[in-house]
Simulated scan of single mutants.
Amino acid sequence: MKITVDRDVLAEAVAWVARSLPNRPSVPILKGLLIRAQDDTVYMSSFDYETSAKITVNAQVDEEGEALVSGKLLSEIARSLPGRPVRISTAANHAELICGSARFTLQTLPVEDYPNLPQMPSATGTVDSEEFAQAVTQVVVAAGRDELLPVFTGVRMEINDDRLSLLATDRYRMALRELNWNPTSSQLDASALVPARVLAETARSMSSGEKVTLALASAVDAEGLIGFLGEGAAGSRELTTRLLDGEFPKVRHLMDIRPSLTVRVRTAEIIDSVKRVSLVAERNTPLRMLIEDDRVALDAATGDQAQASEAVEAVVDRIDPASQIEAVGCNPHYLSDALSALDTAFVQFAFTAPGKPCLVQGVDELDAAPRTDYKHVIMLMRLPS
């Protein structure tokens, strides 16, 4: 194999594929990154039996062939190269990489021992890449990180005709984002539980193109696989990942909150206030939100060592005059994540009672209806008596 490729294209392509490589591969061969040159195209791929990544880039191919090299090492080398064309050639059991006066020799791994990439499922539909990336970012903040509870580390993707819903929860918060998309067939009804980490990286890295194609294996295939196709800075990208097993909890009903009290504040102001007051919040203790007639006051403390408080102007609507809500407690990190996911000038908090779930929604104008495409629910913490 002999190829010549632009340095920036190589560095971006290798870095994207190498992100899917396992840190502790079950077998040494899985640390490899496969390079295959054919016609005027170079394909780079990785696979760890769970997630596969493949990128296609244009290059000058003087001699077709393929080689398997250490993906992490190649990524570090490509990133460090000067801004000149890169020549890669293979011979016997090694690959040689030349860029200007820089020269590297890498030992190759046996290609015949490398597993075949899974077949990409048939396309299910397409979605605007930027909107999809934003939706995923808004939802994955609520996904769990505990690998001992894998069902909570995923994002439930629900397809109902031309409506695509993303839902995540770690049991203490929930996020739901709904958006329109273009299915390949009408009256499509399907669902999948996608690993949140993989989904977040995929959506972010495929935002250069106009559309992202989703390819969900049908129930008949029983592959338990989902694929994504899109464009990145260095070329077209394909990724597949195995779906998570387990029954995702039924939490949608928790989004249907009928509040007894709502509070509206400027999003930027409350974000800054939460960040400042949270600096003195003790671990696992709530950030208190004191609700008054025309403002909310935040306070937190670390025992007797440090205290902080700050008030933010607000519009308070006591829908139920009998409501006795005067103060609520929030996990400051969860509250900050929910607020940072919004892209509206104002935010509305909808409360039913202290210690009950709180619904957070974006509001474009102070007197406008809250947006319904994105909902974030935080389980409130009990305040010490």
Rank of each mutant, 00 (worst) to 15 (best):
Ser218Phe: 01
Ser218Gln: 06
Ser218Glu: 10
Ala219Gln: 15
Asp221Ile: 05
Ala222Met: 14
Leu225Asn: 08
Leu225Val: 10
Ile226Trp: 10
Ile226Pro: 12
Glu231Ser: 10
Glu231Arg: 10
Gly232Gln: 02
Ala233Tyr: 10
Gly235Cys: 05
Ser236Cys: 02
Ser236Gly: 02
Arg237Met: 14
Glu238Asp: 04
Leu239Phe: 05
Leu239Arg: 13
Thr240Glu: 07
Leu244Val: 11
Leu244Pro: 08
Leu244Phe: 12
Gly246His: 01
Glu247Lys: 14
Lys250Ala: 13
Leu254Asn: 08
Met255Pro: 00
Pro259Lys: 05
Thr262Ser: 11
Arg264Lys: 15
Val265Ile: 06
Val265Leu: 11
Arg266Phe: 12
Thr267Trp: 01
Ala268Leu: 07
Glu269Lys: 12
Ile270Val: 14
Ile270Ser: 04
Ile271Cys: 09
Ile271Lys: 14
Val274Trp: 13
Val274Cys: 11
Lys275Val: 06
Lys275Cys: 04
Val277Cys: 06
Val277Asp: 04
Ser278Trp: 03
Ser278Asp: 08
Leu279Tyr: 03
Val280Pro: 01
Arg283Asp: 03
Thr285Gln: 06
Leu287Asn: 05
Arg288Tyr: 03
Arg288Lys: 11
Ile291Ser: 09
Ile291Arg: 13
Glu292Ala: 11
Asp293Val: 10
Arg295Ser: 15
Arg295Glu: 14
Val296Cys: 09
Val296Asn: 12
Ala300Gly: 01
Gly303Met: 00
Asp304Ile: 02
Gln305Ser: 07
Ala306Leu: 04
Ala306Gly: 01
Ala308Ile: 07
Ser309Cys: 02
Ser309Lys: 13
Glu310Lys: 03
Glu310Gln: 13
Val312Tyr: 07
Glu313Pro: 02
Glu313Asn: 12
Val315Arg: 14
Val315Ser: 13
Val316Met: 08
Val316Glu: 10
Asp320Ile: 00
Pro321Val: 07
Ala322Gln: 09
Ala322Val: 01
Ser323Thr: 13
Gln324Asp: 13
Gln324Ile: 08
Glu326Ala: 09
Ala327Cys: 03
Val328Ala: 10
Gly329Pro: 01
Cys330Pro: 06
Asn331Cys: 09
Asn331Lys: 01
Asn331Ile: 00
Pro332Ser: 02
His333Trp: 08
His333Arg: 15
Tyr334Phe: 15
Tyr334Lys: 12
Leu335Tyr: 07
Asp337Ala: 03
Asp337Phe: 01
Leu339Met: 05
